[in-house]
Design a binder for these strands. Structure first.
Lengths: 192, 192
DNA sequence: TGTACGATTGGCCATATGGACAACCCGCAA
DNA sequence: TTGCGGGTTGTCCATATGGCCAATCGTACA
């Protein structure tokens, strides 16, 4: 019984890795099996179909990948701190993390697959909520301009950070420092 | 000679449409040929490979899709007008436009294909430049807070708009109105 | 009229893929 | 010992795909 679960998990891990490395559509059941070091027939036994396997692998991998930013949003002392940290991570080459490729692949697939969209959308929603709490705290402290809806600011920041990832993937030479300066300046409300 | 070019173009158009409808990896040379109403052997004659055909189709389709927002950025009277128009388009269901699906597919593929990344990245760069000009004009008029780098604001706005598309695709129920209000408020610098 | 050449057409092939399955292994309870 | 059942393994198969190619067409030009 325990062995069965281990094989199943190995297949899930291999599938998630391959999605990031080769892209969703290039993943084959045979490649997954080879990566997991199990015979290819094992796939049919443990999963109803290739789609099922990829979906399940992508969902858990995405949850794992989003855990770090979520924790950061929940623990950051301020929005500025969160943004600075994230921008620094981008600049330091965080994009080379396979998790980024995996997220992009999953997002694209989720745009076509309702069963995938639901859980991913829920994770995103949770992230925005944590961010909105942080924004609200900052606004009360006066560290962030008031008079704008906190949930709107949170949605905008989340979209900005993900959009920046997209742009950086398409144009690795893009300098994010001016954007970082602009966003931090606007949020602080310092200029007049 | 003219006929040859027409067949070639029909294949390109069919390929672009199929990328948007079924997703990049689900496109087959036979489906393209059927869509273009030419025999499937025509693909081999007019293009060196399926990859070549898809790349060329995606590049021209992307350029076509980006022409509208680019013109909008160049002609808009102000950043606020541009943003309001774009947000309204999102809310009115602009996401159902096949061009959006096509752009997402192309972006994902470009992340893995240097030959695709280069032209797409150049188009993005051009868009950011037009946006930066608009921002600069607004700052000089005082319609937009100064003291922040215009190119940074432009990069942030571009990322924000694309990131919002991504989030809307993953979560169609997301209400963009608070985000729109927040962004417009922050850029105007009205609150204090 | 003939002919050269680009364009067209449909058949063909090697290959890869997802999935099904029968045989087998092995620990455990009767 | 004998069954039993979950797990494993390798093989087999129908299908689809990308690409190649020989035969054919049609037309502009000599």
């Amino acid at each position: 019984m325990e062995q069965g679960a281990a094989t199943r998990q190995a297949l899930l891990d291999a599938a998630a890795a391959l999605i990031a490395e080769t892209g969703w559509c290039a993943v084959t059941t045979r490649a997954i099996a080879a990566r997991a070091e199990v015979p290819h027939g094992a796939v049919s036994y443990h999963f109803a179909s290739k789609d099922d396997l990829l979906r399940e692998a992508a969902i858990s991998a995405t949850r794992r990948a989003l855990a770090a930013p979520l924790a950061l949003a929940a623990q950051a002392g301020s929005v500025a701190e969160l943004l600075s940290g994230t921008f620094a991570w981008y600049a330091a080459g965080g994009l080379t993390d396979p998790a980024v490729a995996q997220l992009l692949e999953t997002a694209r697939e989720a745009a076509r697959d309702q069963a995938l969209r639901a859980p991913i959308g829920a994770d995103l929603h949770e992230y925005r909520k944590a961010l909105a709490d942080l924004v609200r705290r900052d606004q009360e402290r006066g560290a962030l301009v008031g008079g704008v809806p906190a949930d709107g600011v949170a949605a905008a920041i989340a979209a900005l950070l993900d959009g920046l990832i997209l742009h950086l993937v398409l144009d690795p030479d893009l300098d994010t420092r001016p954007a970082a300066a602009a966003v931090l300046g606007l949020l602080a409300g310092e200029p007049r």
